[in-house]
Design a protein around this nucleic acid. Structure first.
Lengths: 346, 346
DNA sequence: GTCTCCGGTGACAACGTTGTCGCCAACGTT
DNA sequence: AACGTTGGCGACAACGTTGTCACCGGAGAC
């Protein structure tokens, strides 16, 4: 007995259905849909009417498997953690750029795990993305040769990849911390502490390097006891800050290498009751930074530019695969608020 | 003359290449890849060796067009603005749930524009996503009937859809603001102000409703002069707060309907110099809320649960298309900090 | 020895689309 | 009148995969 309780037509209409209804060949439908020449206006109208009345929608992925360029009009993005405001802001900018070129974005979070990053890239690859934008983790992105060999270009964002040359966009990290140091020095600070992430993370290393070179230019050299790295979360940053400000003499100012360090550090200063006396500048702008007391001076990254540039580089690479690789930098901006203005004598 | 400067083999290897190398038929390769029974272990090994040596990777989308279930192992997600921490946090939770089932997530931002939402859904549809998770905007989601008719289930998150019945997960918005009111009332407050978004936004309406009913239960009714809605950004919220706290008698406490309103309101209280005297509870947790002085009491939404539940509902719907629709609610949590403890007499 | 059955396998169609090619009618040119 | 050209169009192959089916050889039943 025939089953009649099935939904009548689960399948979406295809060009075959359209062709049948419009009484033309399937190729003519394809021509109309792709705006190819060689179709009489009245035939075109018949096809469009059939498309309309069936609610036909092109099957992009079936089309892509047959098309010469194989493009799926989608790109893959790997960030460390999409829940992090830095990542989500960059992602949003990439989305907007991609949308303007009618592309969709597949997003995955690697959590800084190279294996997870690689898995995501493979999953993207098997979905035939046209290109990849990656915030690289780990010490080796050479596995990406496979993607490139098969026509999938890669752009790195936030950090350059390792063992794999490709287009990249990064912030001017070293310049940012250097500017922070100069800003503090101009307020009379000489004993400036630094709290940062693991040095294996590109941005963390760059920011410390900028800090050190600016300190050297001013005072000969930075005091190593005031520099703490390898801090992965606010808790570790807090503990490190408590230690550093327990030194004698204690620093009079503090530069934080990222927002997690900043959160921990402000907690520590609060607990120690010296939040009003120690100058503080943090990398990454944070929501509400201007509502803290004292409000927090930050080195803000231009996440919109970071994302938009990464997307631009990718699309330009798609348009011109043979062009030389480019590494672009995006300026950071010191946003002066109260915490950076506290003088050394406080 | 033949062009020899082309890359030697841009095309990724296919099962045909694998079959050739392993000296088997393509169907046997397919069997091995899909772990179908009926392949001798030694044949299997030959195939796997060939897969390995060619670096073969299954073309998921070619496979999906032929497969009976047509699944592409990808889902589409429409949020309002991915750069918003609420959205990115929910997205991250959905990603994780999807990844655990080997699914990828396509994400788009609607910016609250119903037309954009619809465009995104269509783009997702033409990429053959297996399902959709949507934060709906506008007054009519009935266009989703098309997707459902063609086998693409929909789950709403954060707000229910309008004119379209589907699974949905929302926060206990009304309970949240009601709890805030009760919390303030227990500290002696009777004149409590409310700042919120446009009432056409589901969550904003729910939160005001919870506020009003709790006020009625306590004091008979809320004073309408203390209630301001339609606030779209921190600037408008600030202005409204300045007006409300200029009234005589002024409110002694404030409930903010969302984080943007909270930011504006805290600015206003700061400017008016009454930040230490007016109690304040805000919907949505914000980074650094605990570092403000006074630290900000909030009604935190469980974004992780919201996202995970949405994903779970979607996958369960995929597994069982005929089941009755479910609307799930996720509890909110009042996080007591300093600003909620300020007594009415302050 | 013949027949049946079954595990293992491959040839081929099919998915929805685009690329290639050739057909037909209408037209202009010799 | 015969010929080439052109615009408009459709038949069919192909993309990389899975589904259907039939084939082959050997084991077991009679």
């Amino acid at each position: 007995m025939a089953r009649t309780d099935e939904p009548p037509d689960r399948r979406a209409p295809t060009i075959k259905d359209v062709a049948l209804l419009a009484e033309v060949g399937i190729k003519t439908v394809s021509r109309v849909l792709n705006a190819e020449p060689g179709v009489r206006p009245e035939t075109r109208d018949r096809v469009l009417k059939a498309v309309e009345s069936l609610g036909y929608r092109r099957n992009t992925i079936a089309s892509s498997i047959r098309r010469r360029d194989r493009r799926t009009a989608s790109i893959g993005l790997v960030v460390e953690d999409l829940a992090n405001p830095f990542a989500s802001s960059v992602t949003r900018a990439i989305q907007d750029y991609a949308a303007a070129r009618s592309h969709l974005v597949l997003v995955g979070s690697s959590d800084g795990d190279p294996a997870r990053e690689r898995t995501l890239v493979q999953e993207f690859g098997s979905r035939l993305v046209d290109g990849l934008i990656i915030v690289p983790s780990g010490a080796d992105q050479s596995y990406l040769e496979y993607e490139r060999a098969h026509g999938v270009p890669v752009v790195f964002v936030d950090r350059p990849g390792k063992r794999f040359k490709a287009d990249a966009v990064v912030s001017e990290n070293a310049e940012g911390t250097a500017a922070a140091v100069r800003h503090l020095a101009a307020r009379g600070h000489e004993r400036i502490a630094f709290l940062g992430d693991r040095q294996s993370v590109y941005t963390a290393a760059q920011r410390l390097a900028g800090f050190k070179s600016a300190m050297e230019a001013l005072h000969g050299a930075a005091d190593k006891r005031y520099i703490r790295t390898g801090l992965r979360d606010p808790r570790q940053a807090r503990d490190a800050a408590v230690e550093v400000f327990g030194l004698d003499p204690a620093p009079t100012a503090l530069v934080c290498g990222n927002n997690l360090a900043a959160i921990g550090a402000v907690h520590a200063l609060q607990e120690l009751g010296i939040r009003d006396r120690v100058a503080c500048i943090a990398f990454d702008d944070v929501e509400l930074a201007d509502l803290l007391r004292p409000s927090l001076t930050v080195i803000a990254q231009d996440t919109a530019a970071l994302g938009a540039t990464a997307a631009r580089l990718l699309f330009e690479r798609l348009d011109e695969p043979g062009a030389p690789f480019r590494r672009t930098t995006v300026p950071v901006r010191l946003v002066p608020r109260e915490s950076g203005e506290i003088p050394a004598s406080a």
